[in-house]
Design a protein around this nucleic acid. Structure first.
Lengths: 207, 207
DNA sequence: AGGATACTCGTACAGTGTACGAGTCCAGTC
DNA sequence: GACTGGACTCGTACACTGTACGAGTATCCT
């Protein structure tokens, strides 16, 4: 005599579609606003149903990160140098970050020793090796280059989000010439500059 | 006839001491485990008492970041070059991160347009200018260098925390030669290498 | 037919941030 | 002294979170 708890199957419900719905919530409401109840509502499903596909909230976040990371371009076109390959990866990371500015913080905060990022690191290592870089240098190259990219894009996505919300926070007391000019110039040019400096420097010293 | 609600003043209770207690909680339990109730308990005080000094949890986190950021070394010893000054700042940031590995994520995630980090950015700009760098280059220099440092230290503090907790996660299925070797070599040497590449490169191109 | 299995989800609990308002103390002023 | 107004403390309550438990139903296998 319950209202409507018929055990209907929701054909298109699985780990992947749940992660996709979660990403949609994050893209819309921001990463701190992610909640299992909201994801379930997005899918028109009871909250606890999600637990049949995803073991925990933490795992769901990992799935989101995995979804974002597979978007990266690690294809090897013929005659690609390591130098250009590294820049290609950096640019596709930036493109991903700008497609999902509110979700990027999740990528930056993700544990680098667990499946989503660890798998990516392995793919990246193979990519570099295929481009002729010595394996021994990988950890150093990866940590320096990836650190720059993650840090820069964390700043840039913050700036992007700022622009698309409240036009002016009440706390902007100090006219803040610096804050105003900073995000404005924090653009593609600065990213390319950093990329060039680091890729060039690494090539000269380690490869 | 209430149990003990005497309006005792707690002499040493103020915004600063609250931030300090909150930092202690974060250093001990991790940044996700920070809660107002825990901070209040740490101080032997009712939860709502905190709200007389701090307007919100968000503000409390900002206070913690401010506490960490003032530890940085921006002193100018005589004859200091921009090159060495920039490295000095980078090293003192790393020292701070390693002193508070569980709190560093809060610094990395802090909004760069609000008092704690904005004030630091201003102090840093003055520091660079005093060392002879052109003001126009500041935003570019700052974003590239700071991005590297933040990104690198986010990774390194993660690795440090990993070592001090569960010796082996159940999910380490894949023997993960990469994951094991990565944090080990992600050390001072790699940081110095990155610092040298970037400071050198920036100097050559912009200054 | 009967039973296992897969799936759905209502309810409940501990934990969070914080709004409200009732207390209790102290500094002034009459 | 008595009164008043503010500064301070904090108990209670509410809306929200993640998730444990177990009851319900649908489907497939024998």
């Amino acid at each position: 005599m319950s209202k409507d708890p018929r055990g209907n199957r929701h054909a298109h419900l699985n780990r992947d579609s749940i992660a996709r719905a979660a990403l949609a919530v994050v893209d819309r409401d921001g990463s701190e606003a992610l909640s299992l109840r909201k994801v379930a509502a997005e899918l028109g499903v009871g909250t606890m149903t999600l637990y049949h596909y995803v073991p925990s909230r933490e795992a769901l976040v990992a799935d989101i990160v995995a979804l974002l990371v597979v978007e990266m371009d690690l294809t090897i076109s013929s005659g690609l140098s390591w130098r250009d390959g590294a820049k290609q990866v950096g640019r596709s990371l930036r493109a991903m970050a700008l497609r999902h500015p509110r979700a990027f913080a999740l990528v930056a905060a993700a544990a680098s020793d667990k499946p989503p990022l660890l798998d990516f690191a392995r793919r990246l290592r193979d990519f570099y090796v295929a481009l002729g870089a010595p394996i021994e240098a990988f950890v150093e190259v990866w940590s320096v280059l990836d650190a720059f990219e993650t840090g820069f894009l964390l700043l840039e996505t913050q700036a992007v989000m700022r622009r698309s919300t409240a036009p002016h926070d009440e706390l902007d007391q100090g006219t803040s010439e610096l804050a105003d000019r900073m995000p404005a110039t924090l653009s593609e040019a600065a990213y390319e500059e950093g990329l060039e400096i680091i890729v060039g420097g690494l090539e000269r010293r380690l490869l």
